[in-house]
Amino acid sequence: MLLEVKDLHAGIDGKEILKGLNLQVKKGEVHAIMGPNGSGKSTLSKVLAGHPSYGVISGEVLYEGKNLLELEPDERAREGVFMAFQYPVEVPGVSNSQFLRLAYNQKALHHGREELDPLEFNDYLKEKAKIVDMDPQFFKRSVNEGFSGGEKKRNEILQMAVLEPKLAILDETDSGLDIDALRIVAEGVNKLRSPDNAIILVTHYQRLLNFIVPDMVHVLANGRIVKEGGKELALELEEKGYDWVKGAANAN
């Protein structure tokens, strides 16, 4: 088991948002976490990535059998956890390639692998950029600065490609994307799917799942998973709307 979330209660500013969440993710799987606004989707992503504003009240998160929650966000990243942000942050003055090489080399160092010099890294980056159809002119530009919404999201997937995480959490990666940008991002993610990694797609809408077909769909409402099923669950949800599951949440 790559990731095991057991009876997780967590929140922000003393407010409990996740109220006993359970989730199991194996290598090679793609899981979709769906839910209406306020259901706790984003909280789950942020708790897994280690956002300092979010606190865990009780429960356990095991990553490769080890306690993920005691690791700092950067340690989690170096251990192979990656989160694609809903709102990627701009880092003026630092070029994409400089930034990615720093990140790549930190991880390489951690795993006792050889660091790449700028030339070697550039070749590596060029290969990876093909996955999201990104023009190498973006390497020289400051991280996300002046990027359109679609370019930012592609840049997130490029980072994922470069860092080769074992567990990637894509937090509302589809939000704000037009259909062409969505297709490029989704194709990128599909190319990165492998038996050695797992992907958690956090999304409000079903349409992303037309492009990235999940193995499992979990529906979150009021801080708990209220329905689980295969990819067809997303379609059913699309048809019936979130009120359908909200009823289930209240019934619990």
Binding site: A49, G50, H51, P52, E72, P73, D74, R76, A77, R78, F82, M83, F85, P88, V89, V91, P92, G93, V94, F99, L102, A103, Q106, K107, H110, S142, Q159, L163
Partner: peptide
């Protein structure tokens, strides 16, 4: 937080952001 989630240790991440601030 963004830089930390890319595996940069905190000191490096802070310095990089500071550099970006000045570089503008």
């Amino acid at each position: 937080f963004y830089l930390l989630t890319r595996g940069l240790p905190e000191t490096l991440a802070k310095n990089l952001l500071t550099y970006g601030f000045a570089e503008a």
